[in-house]
Structure formats: C-alpha cells, structure tokens
Design a protein around this nucleic acid. Structure first.
Lengths: 340, 340
DNA sequence: ATGAAAGCGCTAACAC
DNA sequence: GTGTTAGCGCTTTCAT
C-alpha cells in the first residue's frame, strides 16, 4: 500500500526560485536576495516576493545552495551511542545551540568501534558538513588524515589530549580518576577496586586512580572490566562478584553513576552497610546519584556544557572569527556525599 | 587562534571525479560508474580507477550527487528531546538500521513545541531528506500541508492515529492507560491518581485510565500535571504532595518509570509501605523499574523497535516497494510486579 | 564498455 | 536595487 491520499504528489516537481521569480515578475536572483540578504532589496519588491514565497509554499533547496556556496550549515556529531545519557546530554546541548543559528545536526553512532568512526567521518566529509564533533581523542590514522585533508573545523570532546586535531572541549579523565583515588585514600580506604568499561576514557580513569593509590602507598587496585554501557544490573552483579572475589575490599569506584547506583541498591537489599562495609563512588553526577541511599559520592562533570561549548566553537569558526581557546578544559570536581 | 598545523589546508579545492578521471585517463562518468555501478565497467579499468580513488583520497560530493539524482540518502528524525531515554532508544534503533543501508540521520528536537516541529519540518524538507520520522500524531496544519506537498515518505511514531499522514508505528497510548486502569481496579484499588506531563501521549494515557476507572465504578482519578521530562526528583516530590493532598489515595500511575522509581525511593526512605499504603505503577519498562524495591508494575512498550520499524518502512519505500503494513501497532502489555 | 551533452537549483561575481 | 553569466560536482539520457 502506498500513500493513501494525494495521488498527484509524486510527479509534481518542487517549486524553485525560478518559479517564484516568474510569478513575481522579477529574476530568480532577486528571490535569492529576499531570502538571504533582504536589506539589499527594495521594500516594495521584497514584500511582493515574500507574499509569493509564502503563497506558493516555496522552500529553498539547500542542497543546491550548499553546492553553490560551499556551506551546508550542517554539523555532524559522532558518539559511541546515543543511549548513554551522558552522550545524549552532549548531543542535546550541541543540537540546541546549533539550531539557534539555523544549523542542523547529523548524528552518527560508533558503538565504540574505531572502524565505524572512520567510516562515519568519511561519510560526513562526503556530505560536506561545515564542522564535525568527535567523541574522545583517540582516532584512526586514516580519520586524522581525512580530516586534515578536508580542512573542516573539528572539535574533539570528552577528554584532553596533547595533540588535538583542531579544537577540543572536555576534561581530563586521567586526572579525574586520580582525584577520586586521592580522595578515597584520604578518607582512609586502602584496598580498592575500579569497575568500568575498556573504552579509552574508562581506562584513563582507572589509570589515574591506580596512580594515586600507588603514590599514596595503597595496594594495587583490582580492575574489573565490564562491557561498556553497563548499567544498574551490571552494578548489582559486580558488587556481589567483588565481595566474593576479595572479601577484604574497602571501596569501589565505578566508571559511571548508574552502575554505582545499581551497587548501592544491591547493598541496600542485602543489608550491606555503605560506606561502612564497602564504600561506593560513581562518575558523572547523574540525577540517580543523589537519589539512591546513601547518596553517591561522585565526580561532577558537564556533559551538556561540552555540547554547548563545542557548538559555540564551531559557530565562531564558521563566522571566520578566531576561537579564543581552541582547547577548553571544563574540569571536574569531587562531590562528597554519603557513600564514600 | 586558527588551526595550528597544516597551513595549506584551507585554499585546497576538494578532489572531484574530474580529477580522478584525468589521472586515470578516463572520463568522469566512468569514475561515477566505478563507484555506483561497478558491474558496468570492465574489470581492468575498474581496478585502475579504484586505485586512483584510494591513492588520491577521493570522497564523492554527495551534495552534488543528491542534487542531480534527487536522492540524498538522508532521513530526518524529530523528537521532543534526545535526553529522554525512550526517545534516545528510538533514535538509536533508527540510526543503526538506516546506517546499514548507507543512510544518514538528521536529528531535530522540538522541546515539545509544535511550532518548533513545524520549523524543523520545513528545514528538513529544504534539505531534501528522503524521509521523515515524526514523534506523535498531532501536528500543525502547516506541517501536514508541507509534508503533503513535498510528497516524501513520513513515519509518525509513538502513538496510533485514525488519520496518519502516511505511515505509522507505535502503540495506542489511550488503550495502554485504559489497560493499566483496568488492572489497578482489578487489583482492588479505587481512589487513584495519574501523574504525567501535558504532552499528547501523557494526556492520552490519563484519558484512558480515567475511562477505565469510571467504567468500573471507581471515583474520578486525581490528575497531577508535572512538567514533561520530569524524573526521579519530581517523582519523590509528587508522591509527598499527593499523600498530603489526598491522604486516602490508594494508587498512583506515573507516566514514566523514572518518576515512579523516584516515588518508590521516597516511599522506602520514609517507610511508606508499597503497595500496602500506596500502590505505584510506571510506564515504559525501563531498567530502573526492575531495580527499585519493590519492583515496579509497569506498561511494557518497545521504544527501540519503533525506531527499527520506522527505518524498515522507509527503506522499503525508498526501494520503491509497497510497505505491507503502513500502520504498525507494536502493542503494549501490563507487567505485573510488586508495586501494584 | 565508454563518452558527450544537458541540467539538477542555487550563489558568486560582475555588470548596469 | 536589480539582472546576467558562469559555475558548484554530480547523474541522467542518449550516443557510439
């Protein structure tokens, strides 16, 4: 079954500037001016053309416009997955900020695969996007080379890097992990575990935490690797596994708040005292961190702001203006609550 | 500060089919064939051209291709907000399914504003997207008219409608609310409340529930309207408000699981017995519904499948094939757990 | 199997 | 203030 109503829709060619121009008795370039630079058209003809535009339902073909002007007003964003609320927040900030200036967002998901990222980057370059937002700072050689050749503005996000491709906004995952490690040692915990995925940012957080513990004379932390994108249930299962594996464990640092919340829920269920029997810490300061009992000590970061800042950087660049800080470190802070 | 490295990037014109053709000693149309219909080119020239394509790093300009062929291989999706995990799931399904066939996704957020939707629809038509996915079945007259005039495939989602614009995939929110109402009455609850946003789907769920209660002789339910996109904290606050407002209340049906979970958390904290003192029900069957105590009775729906099905419908249509069911009701089911 | 010509709908120069 | 000309880089159609 095809479209029910509207039998004449298919063959009808879309209305063009030429059509509007003819109707209004002007040339197509005047229609173009009415749309793009109305101040360069006399008020009389402008109103006249505008009325035809709206009565004829003319919608400019931005494909043709982009081809001619070499500006598409499209930005592409590549995230591991949109299902993870932290990336969804970044995308929301990006999209909202861009749409304020009439830019649209093309979205790609890699599922944490570098090859998928490489493919998406090429596809987006083929679309001639005006700018590109990448998650993380680790990319294939091919990606870097394509990006360099295309010469479009790029913003890497969600981490810091000594050698950004172009612009960068995020925070230092290694330093954040280190800060939490130091905090936990300061609170008197020594035998600890880290629970996280094996994505670059999770690994950096672990490395930072480990460094802090060893520097403070605490023993080597246990590293439990879970699938990236693990949530409540994974947190519950992991805390059980951990307590069985190493009964003398004193604290667990989770790579995201949802897992930590799952662990807290399980502890509550099984009467395991938090933080007395085991302390729990999370990452990201999601809403759930404040709502479970006990409220989670966590690392505060700014997922939404990453998107907003990335958009601002790109828009500035599109405007041919210099970006004041091509590298923006949004930082992090340890939020002390009741769980650790 | 502009790009640090790569001083020669900006002025370099992108490589075109013409460039590759010249290098390979063929005409640009042959390059086009190698890319689009390789079987129509002799193996010898094909390999030759392919090697130049990769050595020169040629990436076809899909803007020009789209303009000439009138097919962009882009689909646009419009959701209220990507931050809400149910819509993120739909977008994930859509994006994953589309990318399998080389289609890209343009994303727009309305923030629950119909005007914003109208603007986005026009912008996306201007981009000449091959298809459009809308959230909900309530749209401005202007949106419907523009869509009809553009003649592109459209999929409405997340609800049922007597008059779909074109294709439709979702479930009946009114019926789902009704089913939960009947379930709660059957369980013996009579004085009830509904807590939800004032978006069309939330209102439909309430209307369905109300109808069920009145039909079964239960009293008019209280309707607490909260901002759309309310989460854990709103659930906690609402349950307090409700118990103060109407102490004899027996059950509360929340328009999403996150709010219901917030309510459950608050009840646990204050020692309010669930479901004895007050029964709680949610909507969507998110992970959190199974993880709070008591586990939440909820309405199961298929957010991810909505996206997958919408993509399948569009891809079928792009392939000039008839879509077997232009209206796909994915249904819902009541999941009985411990909270109601 | 390969190529030439025409045109997709627009904007960027440059006229007047 | 308005129009003319010449592409943007590709696909389509028709020829060879």
């Amino acid at each position: 079954m095809t479209r029910k109503t509207d039998p004449a829709a298919a063959p009808t060619r879309a209305i063009t500037k030429e059509d509007v121009a003819r109707a209004a008795g002007v040339s197509h370039i005047t229609v173009s001016r009415v749309i793009n630079t109305p101040e360069k058209v006399s008020p009389a003809t402008r109103e006249r053309v505008e009325s035809f535009i709206s009565s004829m339902g003319y919608i400019p073909n931005m494909l043709a416009g982009g081809l001619a002007s070499r500006r598409t007003r499209i930005v592409a964003a590549i995230v591991p997955t949109i299902s993870h609320s932290i990336f969804a927040e970044t995308v929301r900030g990006l999209s909202e900020q861009l749409s304020l200036q009439g830019y649209q967002l093309l979205l790609g998901q890699t599922n944490y695969s570098e090859d998928a990222e490489t493919g998406l980057v090429e596809a987006f370059i083929g679309r001639r996007v005006d700018g590109l937002v990448l998650t993380g700072v680790q990319h294939s050689a091919r990606t870097r080379q394509r990006l360099k050749a295309a010469g479009i503005p790029v913003v890497e996000t969600w981490d810091m890097s000594p050698q950004p491709i172009d612009m960068l906004v995020g925070f230092d995952n290694h330093a954040a992990g280190q800060a939490m490690g130091e905090y936990l040692v300061r609170k008197g915990y020594r035998r600890m575990a880290f629970v996280g995925g094996d994505d670059p940012r999770g690994l950096a957080r672990f490395a930072g935490m480990r460094e802090a513990l060893l520097a403070q004379g605490a023993p080597e932390p246990v590293h439990l690797v879970v699938p990236v994108g693990s949530f409540l249930q994974a947190g519950r299962e992991t805390i059980c596994r951990l307590l069985a594996l190493q009964p003398d464990i004193e604290a667990a640092f989770f790579s995201n708040d949802v897992m930590a919340a799952g662990a807290a829920l399980e502890c509550a269920r099984r009467g395991i005292a938090v933080p007395k029997r085991i302390a729990l810490a999370g990452f990201a300061n999601l809403e759930i961190a404040t709502e479970v009992l006990p409220a989670l000590t966590t690392v505060q970061i700014s997922a939404h702001q990453i998107g907003v800042t990335a958009a601002e950087m790109l828009l500035t660049r599109f405007d041919s203006q210099p970006v004041a800080q091509a590298v923006c470190d949004l930082g992090y802070s340890i939020l002390e609550r009741d769980s650790a």
